[in-house]
Amino acid sequence: MERVPILKIGQILLVSIQIDLQDQTVQVLQEDLAERIVRTGARGVIIDITAVDIVDSFIGRMFSTIASMSRLMDAETVVVGMRPAVAITLVELGLSLGGVRTALDLEKGMRLLGASLPSLADGR
């Protein structure tokens, strides 16, 4: 099973999903992230799904879980780069991703985190 790498940039953890996600990978990623947030004291999490061509209910639920989980550990989560076809399908599927913040691309996601966490602006 492949593992999704988690990168740390300043106080932000960046997860860029580049593979076809299977359920177990999703679960491991959730656990890895929780552990990294605690260990690094990160204040923000960005999940980049620009390369993801489908999000089903299982993957969608991961976003919600990560968002609520990181909030408990005082970190904000932003999902960035959702493709139009994926967004339309999620709406049709009936998944609203409640509690998950989204941004068009990585840059806008960083800005969104920066705005809500002024201490992030200088990257420390």
């Binding site: 076809d20 061509d53 489908i54 999000v55 089903d56 209910s57 299982f58 493709r83 139009p84 076809a85 994926v86 339309i88 399908t89 049709e92 599927l93």
Partner: peptide, 27 residues
């Protein structure tokens, strides 16, 4: 998912419809 994606593309489904059927297949 991959098999469905290939078949849906070959059948000429639009990108959105491909995504819908692949997602349904995943569920």
């Amino acid at each position: 998912r991959q098999a469905v994606r290939t078949a849906a593309a070959a059948a000429g489904l639009s990108l959105v419809d491909q995504t819908k059927i692949v997602t349904a297949a995943s569920e």
